[in-house]
Amino acid sequence: MSGSKPIMRLLRLREFPIFQQLQVEERLLRDTQCNWCIINDGTAPPSIVMGISGKPELLLDVRAVIQDQVPVIRRFSGGGTVIVNSDTVFVTIICNRDAVPNLSLYPHPIMRWTEQLYAPVFEGVPGFQLREHDYVLGSLKFGGNAQSIIKNRWLHHTSFLWDYDNIQMQYLKLPSKAPSYRLARPHGDFICRLKDYLPSRDLFLQTIVSALQVHFIVQGSTIDDTGQNMPSKSPRTTKILTSVQLDSFLTDCNPKV
């Protein structure tokens, strides 16, 4: 702690592979005691990211994913399924229990606190709110969230849609457990692009940092500071699904008679 605010280490990345980012997140959550924020401005190559319990055969057009060789990542945290690319902005907050005063370490209170954190970022943009587990403008989703909570630490990961590719969205099926406000709308009628509402991507990123500075003393860090190449103290659960594994899900969808 320094003064009245806790210290938060800020790691700024650009087009860092999302698989490696998730590995870094898992390490920082489990193996460090610092507060962290990771901002990754885009990622390459385009990839599909699923929650730890996601079932590809129910969430993806598995045949198209295999044919187009799209990487499929099963992350260590919960949350839904997204396809991400260079137009996705990732922000992950990792904190100790006492970093946010009076915050209960349960999903809904953490979500509500992040809504307050991001409110200044969208000042002047009508309709910003947390709706169920998503950030929305009115009834249109622009941010999906995933969380992981352990004994004295928590992680909140957001994928912000600065822009998206309609064709890539076709890899995703309409999930059976969709938010009620979705009303079975296809992706194109359910999500929106932040670039249509905010003046610039750089300003968006800077206002996120400014919002963090209200609550934390923000200190810059580098990828080397994360110890990503150090031996792990605990098992890692973020994995890339192999083509063989994906093919098995396809086979399960089409059993032989």
Rank of each mutant, 00 (worst) to 15 (best):
S4W: 06
S4P: 09
R9C: 03
L13V: 11
F16A: 10
I18H: 08
F19V: 08
L22H: 12
L22D: 10
Q23D: 11
V24T: 08
E25Q: 09
L28M: 07
L29R: 02
C34R: 15
C37A: 03
D41A: 06
T43Y: 01
P45E: 01
P46L: 00
P46I: 04
S47T: 10
S53G: 15
P56L: 09
E57Q: 13
L60R: 03
R63L: 07
D68E: 08
V70P: 08
I73P: 02
R74T: 06
S77W: 05
G78E: 07
G79R: 00
T81D: 01
V82Y: 04
N85V: 02
D87T: 07
V100A: 03
S104G: 15
S104F: 08
L105I: 00
Y106K: 15
P109N: 11
R112K: 05
L117G: 06
Y118V: 09
G124D: 07
G127W: 08
H133I: 11
S139I: 08
L140I: 10
K141D: 06
K141N: 09
G144P: 06
I149R: 03
K151N: 08
N152M: 01
W154M: 00
H156L: 11
H157C: 10
L161S: 11
N166V: 12
I167N: 10
Q170L: 11
K177N: 11
Y181G: 01
Y181A: 01
R182V: 02
H187S: 13
F190Q: 09
L194N: 07
K195Q: 15
D196W: 13
I208H: 02
A211P: 08
Q219I: 12
T222C: 14
D224S: 13
N229E: 15
N229I: 11
M230W: 13
P235D: 06
V244S: 08
D247K: 14
S248C: 03
T251C: 13
V257R: 13
V257D: 06
